[in-house]
Computed example of a mutant assay.
Amino acid sequence: MPQAPNGYARPSVDQVEEPGTTTGTTPSTVADTPVPARRPPAGSAPDRPAVSTRRDAFFDNAKFLAIVLVAVAHAWEPVMAGSRATKALYLLVYAFHMPAFIVISGYFSRRFTAAPGQLRRLLTTIVVPYVVFEVAYSLFKRYADDSPGHPISLLDPWYLTWFLAALFIWRLTTPLWLTLRHPLAVALVVAALASLTPSIGEDLGLQRVLQFAPYFVVGLCLRPEHFQLVRRREVRLLALPVLAGAAAFAYWAATHMRTAWLYHDNSAQELDSPGWVGPVMTFALFGCSLLLTAAFLSWVPGRRTWFTALGAGTICGYLLHGFVIKGAVYAGLFDDHAWPTTPLGRVVVTVAAAVAVTALCTAPVRRLLRPVTEPEMKWAFRRTG
């Protein structure tokens, strides 16, 4: 993406959808907040709302820190066996990293009305990357893992691509959610019912779509003042005992709870539990995840930092880091060597994952991937207006 002196030249796939614009957000989940622009001179024609495209450092920082946690948690999966502490950290991070992404995605989807321009952006910045990376990951699995029978199916998202399919569905249903009197209550009921319905199947990752939907709806219901509230000093101080308590609980849960509950991709019956446990876990995890998301956001810097500009490239970090981690797994790095499962080895794996995803969020990678993550595709659409 062409760089301006401040690192941003034009609205990217990560930018907010503002009134009167046709931009959209991607699974990197959004980056900009509306910054009031100067009012037009008196007597001038108010063509459209005056909105600055200046990015809000808080949301760029939150996106970058969240994508680092995503990559680190994925890197812990092959090395956490035998380490209760590592599994506890894994459970703690998994409880809020995707909910945080989804809440922010919902917040920046409030302006989605399915206008022609918005639909074009939806197709080019979500559907196109989904198709490309679903095929790419499937081929990678087939040949790098010596799994010739692994299918290539656009209806069955594999590994990371489920979020693209889910965001597409959530975004399309945004006008419906916003017409409801109590959208969050409805979303929670739908999620609870999904958790006890094994017949939903795996098409487009619908279990995750339905079970994670409440977080998206929470984002739709939020306003700027809510984010200001969570960033107050007293909230930051309260976040410390919350995180400490959550870490202690995660340490206990590491030997008592199945991690699959945090993936939200199975019903209770598929996890060998009675059906009624599904709704109970849905509500319990929802409350826990929102609390941890608020604690996480309270400590996100609101000022520009060295990693603020990297927040615009989280779509690349998200979509590419899976190749790095799965590549290491397929290469036998964790099976053929004992050192990654030592305490020092786990630290090295953690740092390596954080450094790798940071590099994948940089401007050169974004420019290289732009034809896939934000293609213009003018040839595919009718001219409007």
Rank of each mutant, 00 (worst) to 15 (best):
R142T: 02
R142M: 03
Y143E: 01
D146K: 10
S147D: 09
P148C: 00
P148S: 00
G149H: 02
G149D: 05
G149I: 02
H150S: 05
H150R: 01
H150V: 01
I152M: 13
S153M: 12
L154R: 11
L154F: 12
L155S: 11
D156E: 11
Y159L: 15
T161G: 14
W162G: 12
F163P: 10
F163K: 15
A166F: 14
W170T: 07
W170F: 10
W170H: 08
R171T: 15
R171E: 10
L172A: 03
L172S: 00
T173N: 00
T173D: 00
T174S: 07
W177A: 06
L178F: 04
L180D: 10
L180M: 13
P183W: 01
V186D: 07
V189R: 10
A191G: 09
A194R: 06
A194L: 09
S195E: 07
L196W: 11
T197G: 00
T197Y: 05
S199G: 11
S199Q: 09
S199A: 12
G201Q: 02
E202Y: 03
D203W: 10
G205W: 01
L206A: 07
L206Y: 04
Q207K: 14
R208F: 01
V209Y: 02
L210R: 05
Q211N: 05
F212D: 06
F212L: 15
V217Q: 05
L220W: 04
L222G: 06
E225W: 09
F227I: 03
Q228Y: 00
Q228V: 06
L229K: 00
R232V: 02
R233I: 08
E234D: 08
L237V: 05
L238C: 05
A239I: 12
A239E: 10
